[in-house]
Amino acid sequence: ENLQGDIQPSLALVLLFLRDVEAAEKDIALQRKIVVTGSGKKKLVRLEVNNIDPAANIRRITDNINATIMLSGTFSPLEAYELYCLGEEGRAKKLSLPNPFPRENRLLLAAKKATTYLEQREDIDNREEISGHIRSLIECVPGNVAVFFTSYPMMNNYRDLCLASSRRVGKRLCVEPRSAEEVPELLDQFFSLGARGGGVLTGVCGGKLAEGIDYKGEALKGVAVVGLPLAAYDEIQREINSYYTMKYGRTKGMLIAYTLPAINRGLQAAGRVIRAESERGVLLFCDRRFKDDDLGGVNRFLPSWVRDELIVVDAREGRELIRERIKGWGGENKAVDDPGGGSEIIPDGGSKAGPHKRRGARRGSKRDLRELARSLGLGGHSPRGNAAPRGSGRSGG
């Protein structure tokens, strides 16, 4: 289909795909997998061929032109992305720049105790720490806030907590829908809450709401990244890990294949908050691995400005710091003892429960794909990457 929904069969595309399927027999950078989507009787099965190593394709461009500049606000450390993008160390001139926005306009916190590490995920004290951090963000930051989890099951596990905290301060809960078609309507509703009491958006790192969307102005005042968003350790991920370990050795290979994408998802989610020099916001990394370098910690891989500004706190300390910073910014904490309030849930699917259904809201309507792309802010992204080939200009970090 094209953007207008017209079917345009192309034998050339079919032949190119079959060529890639055949090439995957010998090229270990080409990964074949069978993907099943849908539920119940309505399931779709497709065969995919994915190139898990972009270096060869990027080098076809960079090696044949005079200069290339690649930059991103989240790619760190630069040396790892040089390997990932160009497949060679010392190929690029690398430059990491400081955050250009005023430091006093942001508060960066990292959990001292809380973690979503599998072996401690269900520990009672650990769950209470995570819950305390989430409550602090929702209840102490005025206006719109977002809580991004590592997976949909985890998001659902903390849904009641988010709802209760939202009601306590008169905010409304918005839950990331499974269908991309429902995202524009959900975002319209969430953005409108910024100027009238505030909303709480729950989603997934690397999902439809955590990347590629510009939350400007009153759209977002605080973000919590709950957990280190590592990919599911399934057969596909093990194959990717094996490929990069074989190519770069155990330490560098696992960093590029497994750890680096998780860090990027976390930084992308946190980066939704402050989008302009005049904006203020709270960034909370709710997992102790963001402040650690041992036991799977990733602190040394974070951008230098993040490492320098991170304040390590437990849930109680974090709450006090957030309150103090909000007061210094001239904001007010809107605490409400009555949990009844006018809070509402926008559940999976984008519709609201109860009598608060928005008038004129479109439900179930399939939007033109071009309109959806515009609503999601697609088509205007900064180029991804963080390394510039030798002889070029400089790259940004």
Rank of each mutant, 00 (worst) to 15 (best):
W305P: 00
S278P: 12
R135H: 09
L11R: 07
D234P: 05
I134A: 02
L137H: 00
R121C: 11
E22C: 13
E320F: 11
V35N: 13
F75K: 14
S76I: 00
L283K: 03
L283S: 04
R374W: 15
M246L: 11
A23K: 10
V145S: 01
P261S: 03
E185N: 12
G340C: 14
T245N: 09
G38H: 05
A23H: 11
D338G: 08
W305Y: 05
E119S: 13
A180G: 15
S242H: 12
R289F: 04
R167A: 11
E317A: 07
R250M: 12
D160K: 15
I52Q: 00
A219G: 07
D314L: 02
P102D: 07
L302F: 01
P383L: 15
D214M: 04
L302W: 02
D125K: 13
R323V: 12
E88N: 00
V204A: 06
K247N: 01
D53C: 04
L47D: 10
V313E: 02
V306R: 02
R307Q: 10
S278A: 14
A210N: 05
P184L: 07
L295P: 06
V313Q: 05
R362S: 15
G227D: 05
E25S: 14
T251R: 08
D338R: 10
L97W: 07
R238S: 10
G132F: 02
L284N: 06
Q120H: 14
N2D: 13
R168Y: 07
V49G: 06
V336M: 09
E344Y: 15
C85W: 10
R19C: 11
T150N: 08
S151V: 07
P100K: 04
V306I: 10
R91Q: 03
V306Q: 00
R135K: 11
N105Y: 09
C205Q: 09
N126G: 02
S151G: 07
L209D: 05
E320V: 09
S343A: 14
E181W: 14
G350M: 09
S304V: 14
E139Q: 08
T116R: 05
Q31T: 12
A55Y: 00
I322L: 02
A270E: 03
L16H: 14
F75D: 13
D348H: 12
R178M: 15
E344K: 15
G385I: 00
E182V: 13
P261Q: 03
N144R: 04
V282C: 01
K93Q: 12
A224M: 03
L283W: 00
G349S: 06
D6C: 08
A335W: 11
